[in-house]
Amino acid sequence: MATSGKQHTRLGEQAWNKMSKVNAEFFALTYGAMVMQLVQDFEDTAAVNAQLDTMGYNIGVRLIDEFLAKSGTGACADLRDTAETIAKVAFKMFLGVVAEVANWNADGTAFSVVLYDNPLIEFVELPPQHCELLYSNVLCGVIRGALEMVQMKVECRFARDVLRGDDLNEIRVELKEVLAEQMDDQYFEGM
């Protein structure tokens, strides 16, 4: 496992080095402005959290193409491989930070992505009236959307959040179902 972990880290570094990049402060401020807009639009914090998740999902289903095209990773062998790829390659390639995989459940169908350094929250403090806000919930949506495009239905939620007083950010990912590979007739004709 250790060697494969290293390999993921290396792939992540390589992908990151190839990318065209932008100042993370600007990105964090833009994200913050968008979240503030949502907070103004919806009265209910739960609705804001859901909207952030939906927006993340929409991003995820598009982002997976970029990831598959430019990350240099192949198909994942199993869920452990997938988890390492998300944490070490995808987070590095897009946000420039490496996450860790932790807390596998006994039957190996759920894991946590632990993010020590979250570029989204650089300037953020949650005011008391918004303490239920899952500020970075967009990340859950992105993971869910991206994995759905590679036939994995997962549930994602923020289990721990630095903004809510936890010592680190933890996104819990639970595999619900592996969707059957759907092939169109045209693929068979070509074979």
Binding site: M19, E25, F27, F94, L95
Partner: peptide, 10 residues
């Protein structure tokens, strides 16, 4: 001295 993210994110 600057933190960066992928252009695609923006």
């Amino acid at each position: 001295g600057k933190r960066l993210v992928n252009d695609v994110c923006v």
